[in-house]
Amino acid sequence: MKILTRAILLTSALALAACSSPDRFRGDEVNLGGAGGSGSASDPTSPLYFQETVGDRVLFAVDQSNLSYEAQSTLDGQAQWLMANADYNAIIEGHADEQGTREYNLALGARRANAVQEYLVQQGVAASRLKVVSYGKERPIEICSQEACYAKNRRAVTVISADYNS
């Protein structure tokens, strides 16, 4: 995982404040905060713009991995951004809500991440720029045990990374 160790996860102070950083736990990633390399939200080439304006995540129905019309629309924007900003790579993180067994949810999260990857590749993003991983139910962003929270946890998040040595 050489790329990962060199990669820097670009996030913003805003996002840090908004949620409790479920997707940023790997020790080899450096959280730059808002002032660093993630750029300004008004700069359309910045990962922050990708996260906030393009939209970094799509949501899924219970036990499903098919992409809704709304999800496809978000992913169209992601594909355009990725093709316009070829210096960046992405890791697609698939997640499930807590209503399910651990192993099944890992596999379900992988289906969701893969659905996003396939869609982005169909739109023209080079497959070599995308990695997928599933966290199953290990990293919820919302912690209530109700559908309002579950709906936000059944997600695939496209996390932009930059390989500074390439």
């Binding site: 991995s65 192993e103 890992l106 596999a107 992988a110 289906r111 893969n114 659905a115 990857q117 396939e118």
Partner: peptide
């Protein structure tokens, strides 16, 4: 993921996910 030993301890059965399929 989901590894488990065989009763003789020589083999591990597990799940492997590739292209979204487990």
């Amino acid at each position: 993921f989901a590894p488990r030993f065989s009763p003789d301890g020589r083999t591990v059965v597990y799940s492997l996910t590739q292209d979204g399929n487990t």
